[in-house]
Design a protein around this nucleic acid. Structure first.
Length: 794
DNA sequence: GCGTTCAATGTACCT
DNA sequence: ACAGGTACATTGAACGCG
């Protein structure tokens, strides 16, 4: 019989030495199904030495009498574009591949073994074109569900599934959750601190809250939660930070209480696998925190900040409670209600965010062929890589090994020194997808690279400026083909979107798709220059930036020749005087002569540059302000400094009154000295980028982190530490305290005046001739001002 | 012995 | 665990001064 299914999750099992591929899905009638394929052999390739006789090598391998090898087959493949003879080595099961490959590597006539490092389940997907988050049709036979598999139907696959074009996902059952634990001594520990609240919400609209008992006994709440999950039987379980927090905690807590967290579809516990993601067999576990990196504008990646940014739940309307206050809230009957509300809002936020991101996640999964629960957890480089692997399989290319490389830096993009001060009517021209298009235009790829000692091919070569790397013109290389495909596909999607209503399901799916395509396109250049990449080739990345520099350089020359004043530029953008009648022909000329498309991005009514690169502020025609690089948008400055700089820039750009700006600074400093600004605006947040003990120097945030650790809080790499500077003597790092361990009256206000507010204000106002002294009021004046404001009110 | 100088360290940003 | 280019604060050792 035939069945249709949408692929949700994949895993493999080895039963009696026979590997089985398990495909978990949803069929077209909404049934949850498991399809088992027992016919896919585990294999890898032994590449035959040039000139060696493949048949002889096969015999050599056979001589080994290697019992783990099932079959040998001589095949034609390509490796970096060159035809090679290889032996496809079929193994008994995937687990023995590494051992087999090791043995075969030392056999005469075997140049190397390949694809022994590609996971069996991924080989299955890429070889058969079976695609996560995609529909398929398979020839199957129904099996009796004798095991404890939690699905409606179990099938045996007779023929590998065929992918079907159908964009829309089935109706999925989604369960969002968040949990709260009770621990008075810092971070809760699962071996002694209970789970007190678990809040859940489903895609069917059911909200539920599980509470520990009055004595904080949490056996029941956990059992009820497990029961509930199993009963609802979600396809997707989603949360925020759950891979590192909730899952390990709940899992360990259950064990401690004598039972298992059995919530998947196969009767096993959540297991942490390859990329540090938590896998729930048969379901897709999604940690939304993994997608937070897609939004660099969210500086501190908390759930409430993400929900706020995505318009899911505005932060002003949010119940917010700090971790350290949980016990206090729980212990107080009235405040417990607030804690419950907070917890439910967390889950509501989770559900809102998944609504906003799920389409993208599914499209990314579908595009690169990584299962839905994997695609979020892997680094960008691996997303690109899986997309490349999929393409390589299609064209018969063998997958290169990851080779350990030493880090060799190379020169990147060109950054112009800005013309400092204010400028009026400045347009920004951007090269469209500069690096991908350069890679296409000059056929940059590991397989087209011609080393200096190699003969120049018949088709001729492109020679990169400055670095002089050469790449053959024909035929198109691996990267060129892939990037051309991606760019074309994105254009197709975008033109199709234009024919649809923005509210339609299809439009949403296509929009998510084009975003996924864009992400992969834009990451390809970085991937090529990443030493961890299978398709790493330094000259490729180095040539791309070299052509980038020459391109922008030439564009600037053309602009100046056309009488346009260029005030700034960075990598693929040029800032110049807005004269539409000159810019129009300039774009045309650039495109014609340089072969790359350049297009106007925006026009600033007024723009301000300091003497530094990568830092400016602009006023847009609609009155909006654009801040780039400056402290006002940086996450590691106290809010007071950011506010002051933002306001100063606003006054400068909108009113052009440095004096007024200086007066504002004076006023603010005065407010601060009177401690009239909120305490939380004094917190400085910095990320721990390595384990505390590995720091070579004493740093403020690290010292603050140590204080928290001493109090029982667990801090890990990537965590943000918030501290304030308190009064005292000695080095700065000796005068900091975690903000929750300090009080306002300890704060060293003068530090904030001289090291936070004044420098960031001066950065702007200096270029208008205003000195630091002019931003400060003398102490005597200060006292006078205070008397007056006290008298008249401020 | 003590203040000054400057390279190194660390973080976060831009394209 | 995609790239390089850049700004800036702070540390800590070298340096200079008698």
């Amino acid at each position: 019989m035939k069945t249709m299914f949408w692929l949700l999750d994949i895993n493999y099992e080895v039963k009696n030495d026979t590997p089985e591929i398990w495909l978990w899905g949803i069929d077209d009638s909404g049934k949850r199904v498991l399809l088992i394929d027992r016919a896919f052999p585990a294999y890898f390739y032994a590449v035959v030495e040039d000139g060696a006789n493949p048949q002889r090598v096969v015999e050599e391998i056979e001589k080994e009498q290697y019992s783990l090898v099932v079959k040998l087959e001589v095949v034609e493949r390509k490796f970096f574009g060159k035809s090679v003879k290889a032996i496809k080595v079929y193994c008994k099961n995937p687990d023995v591949i590494p051992r087999c490959a090791r043995v075969l590597r030392s056999i005469e006539g075997v140049k190397d073994c390949l694809e022994d490092d590609v996971r069996y389940s991924m080989q299955y997907l890429t070889d058969n074109n079976v695609i996560p988050c995609g529909w398929h049709e398979a020839e199957v036979a129904e099996e009796k569900n004798t095991t404890s598999i939690h699905v409606d139907k179990v099938y045996t696959i007779n023929l590998p599934p065929k992918s079907i074009e159908k964009a829309e996902a089935p109706r999925l059952k989604i369960l969002g959750f968040s949990s709260i634990c009770y621990g008075k001594e810092g971070s809760p520990k699962p071996d002694r601190n209970p789970v007190i609240i678990i809040s859940t919400k489903t895609s069917t609209g059911e909200a539920k809250q599980f509470l520990a008992q009055e004595d904080k006994n949490d056996k029941l709440i956990l059992e009820e939660f497990i029961d509930y999950v199993r009963k609802f039987d979600p396809d997707i379980i989603v949360g925020y930070g759950i891979n590192t927090q909730d899952w390990p905690y709940l899992s360990e807590r259950c064990r401690k209480l004598g039972f298992r967290l059995n919530i998947d579809r196969a009767g096993t516990e959540p297991h942490t696998s390859v990329y540090g993601h938590v896998s729930l067999t048969g379901r897709a576990n999604i940690d939304l925190l993994d997608f937070a990196d897609e939004f660099p504008e969210v500086k501190i990646k908390t759930l409430e900040n993400m929900a706020d940014y995505l318009g899911v739940m505005k932060i002003e309307k949010r119940t917010l409670i700090e971790d350290m206050d949980f016990p206090g809230y729980w212990d107080d009957k009235d405040r417990r209600e607030v804690l419950k509300k907070f917890s439910m809002e967390n889950t509501d936020s989770v559900m809102g965010i998944v609504e906003a991101l799920l389409d993208f996640a599914m499209q990314l999964s579908n595009l690169v062929s990584l299962p839905l629960d994997h695609v979020g957890t892997v680094a960008v480089g691996f997303r690109v890589e899986w997309f490349l692997i999929k393409h390589a399989k299609k064209i018969g290319e063998l997958i290169p090994k990851r080779i350990e490389q030493s880090y060799r830096p190379y020169v990147g993009g060109l950054v112009l020194t800005p013309k400092p001060g204010l400028h009026e009517n400045i347009a920004v021209l951007d090269f469209k997808a500069m690096y991908p298009n350069i890679m296409i235009a000059y056929n940059l790829s590991p397989d087209t690279y011609i080393a200096s000692d190699e003969p120049i091919p018949y088709s001729g070569v492109f020679e990169a400026p400055e670095v002089k790397h050469t790449f053959r013109k024909e035929p198109p290389g691996f990267y060129k083909e892939v990037l051309t495909y991606l760019i074309n596909v994105r254009e197709e999607i975008r033109s199709k979107m234009k024919t649809l209503s923005a509210k339609s399901v299809e439009y949403r799916v296509l929009d998510a798709r084009q975003k996924a395509v864009k992400v992969i396109t834009n990451a390809a250049y970085g991937y090529a220059g990443w030493i961890g990449a299978r398709w790493y080739k330094k000259p490729v990345a180095e040539a791309a930036t070299a052509w980038g520099r020459s391109t922008i350089h030439n564009a600037i020359k053309m602009a100046e020749k056309a009488g346009l004043k260029v005030v700034y530029g960075d990598t693929d953008s040029i800032f110049l005087s807005y004269e539409p009648e000159k810019i129009e022909p300039l774009s045309k000329e650039v495109e014609e002569k340089l072969g790359l498309e350049i297009k106007p991005d925006k026009v600033y009514t007024r723009i301000f540059f300091t003497e530094a690169k990568k830092r400016y502020a602009g006023l847009l025609p609609d009155g909006q302000l654009d801040f780039v690089g400056l402290e006002v948008i940086r996450g590691d400055w106290a809010a007071i400094a950011k506010k002051v700089q933002g306001k100063v820039l606003e006054i400068i750009l909108k009113e052009q009154s440095p004096k007024k700006a200086a007066r504002f600074v004076q006023q603010y400093v005065s407010e601060l000295r009177q401690k009239r600004v909120p305490y939380r605006d004094l917190i400085i947040w910095k990320t721990l980028t390595k384990p505390v003990e590995e720091y070579e120097i004493k740093a403020s945030h690290v010292e603050a982190a140590k204080m928290l650790t001493a109090k029982g809080w667990t801090l890990t790499v990537g965590d943000k530490v918030g501290y304030v500077v308190v009064a005292g003597t000695g080095r700065l790092y000796e005068r900091v305290k975690p903000y929750m361990l300090a009080s306002y009256n300890e704060v060293d206000v003068e530090y904030y005046v001289t090291k936070q507010i004044i420098p960031v204000a001066a950065r702007i106002l200096e270029s208008f001739g205003i000195t630091e002294e002019q931003m400060l009021v003398s102490k005597a004046e200060e006292r006078e001002t205070r008397k007056l404001t006290d008298f008249f009110g401020s």
